[in-house]
């Protein structure tokens, strides 16, 4: 499955619904389909649209999803230069983190997925991996 969307957060819901639906059909656990996949993918897409592409509607976000026998892999690619994933993840160690309005997205991706990888090539890509349990 593949989508190429404009950098508009209103585009997120349809993609998330399709990927979560594919996970249901593939027999992933109910909670993974209801919570882990929708939230983690929403975070990755929102980061790509808002941080990566600066909400510039002329810039595109590519989402591809693949389900094999035991694993979901989703890749979200924007046209930006990426960001320091480790630094973003480390925000949760800040004593003031609970009181912050932002800074939970990367943390949630890691908490809800089995693996999160990022790299810059032709744009910046985040790969989410969830294994079937």
């Amino acid at each position: 499955m593949e989508w190429i969307i404009a950098s508009d957060v209103s585009e997120i819901a349809a993609v998330v619904e399709a990927v979560a639906g594919a996970c249901v059909a593939a027999g992933f656990a109910d909670k993974a389909c209801r919570l882990n996949v929708p939230v983690a993918l929403t975070e990755a897409m929102a980061n790509a649209i808002v941080r990566g592409n600066g909400s510039d509607a002329s810039r595109r976000v590519r989402v591809s999803a693949c389900i094999t026998d035991d694993t979901l892999r989703v890749e979200v690619t924007d046209e930006g230069n990426g960001f320091d994933l480790a630094a973003a993840r480390a925000l949760c160690e800040d004593p003031e983190w609970v009181e912050r309005e932002d800074g939970r997205g990367v943390f949630l991706m890691h908490a809800l997925m089995d693996k999160v990888e990022t790299w810059c090539d032709a744009g910046h890509t985040v790969r989410l991996v969830l294994r079937r349990t």
Partner: peptide
């Protein structure tokens, strides 16, 4: 409610 993302959680904090 189905789910809440980090933006929704942040709105609640604010």
């Amino acid at each position: 409610t189905g789910y809440i993302d980090s933006s929704g959680l942040g709105a609640l904090v604010s």
